[in-house]
Computed example of a mutant assay.
Amino acid sequence: MAKAKPVKLGWSSEEVENITHALNDLLVNYSVHYQKLRNYHWNVKGSDFFDLHIEFEQQYKEAQDHIDDIAERIRVFSKTPVSTMGEYLEQSEIKETTSQLSSEIMVRELIADYTILLGYMFAVIEIASAQHDAGTEEMVKVFIHQIEKHHWMLSAFLAK
């Protein structure tokens, strides 16, 4: 038994390519978003400092976990996740910003990021569902729930 080849998961090479390509698209965008959250956590100023400093930290820790889950899911398919900052910045629709932003602009940037991330998440779910990939679909649906909540909360924050 130990000499037997590993069991194939059941997807064709094309299906694996479709799933992992969509996951890598999500990964590169999530990675740039994660760094923006850390940047904003470190550099937020003003009367919103305490609230946003804590909120940004919670969100970047969550993003870090999601990024790890996405990369490990890509590895499940024996593919390589995009892994360098250069690749992230080159391939991501989400763009980095400076550190010298008002707290309101930081929040607006994050809300825009969430809209982009949700688009990539919905694309992953569509592909995963078509390939009968329940593991990927279930993982990303959890992410969607959390991102939608962050979008709502930060939008409410701006409605002062």
Rank of each mutant, 00 (worst) to 15 (best):
residue 132 H to C: 04
residue 128 A to P: 10
residue 137 E to N: 07
residue 125 I to V: 15
residue 141 K to N: 13
residue 134 A to Y: 09
residue 146 Q to H: 09
residue 133 D to M: 04
residue 136 T to F: 06
residue 136 T to V: 12
residue 126 E to V: 03
residue 141 K to P: 00
residue 142 V to N: 09
residue 132 H to W: 09
residue 129 S to C: 12
residue 145 H to A: 07
residue 125 I to T: 11
residue 145 H to C: 02
residue 147 I to L: 08
residue 147 I to M: 02
residue 137 E to K: 11
residue 125 I to A: 08
residue 141 K to H: 11
residue 148 E to H: 07
residue 122 F to Q: 14
residue 137 E to G: 03
residue 133 D to N: 04
residue 144 I to R: 05
residue 148 E to L: 10
residue 138 E to K: 14
residue 121 M to D: 03
residue 131 Q to C: 09
residue 143 F to L: 09
residue 127 I to F: 12
residue 132 H to Y: 14
residue 139 M to I: 02
residue 124 V to P: 01
residue 127 I to Y: 12
residue 147 I to A: 01
residue 130 A to G: 08
residue 127 I to W: 07
residue 136 T to Q: 02
residue 136 T to N: 06
residue 128 A to K: 08
residue 140 V to T: 02
residue 146 Q to G: 00
residue 130 A to F: 14
residue 125 I to C: 14
residue 142 V to E: 14
residue 120 Y to H: 15
residue 136 T to L: 06
residue 124 V to D: 04
residue 149 K to G: 00
residue 149 K to P: 02
residue 145 H to R: 10
residue 127 I to T: 15
residue 141 K to A: 01
residue 142 V to W: 11
residue 147 I to D: 00
residue 149 K to M: 04
residue 121 M to L: 13
residue 128 A to I: 08
residue 126 E to I: 03
residue 125 I to N: 08
residue 126 E to L: 12
residue 136 T to A: 02
residue 133 D to A: 02
residue 124 V to F: 03
residue 139 M to Q: 03
residue 124 V to N: 07
residue 140 V to W: 03
residue 121 M to T: 02
residue 136 T to E: 02
residue 138 E to R: 12
residue 120 Y to N: 14
residue 144 I to P: 02
residue 121 M to I: 07
residue 119 G to P: 12
residue 132 H to N: 10
residue 139 M to V: 01
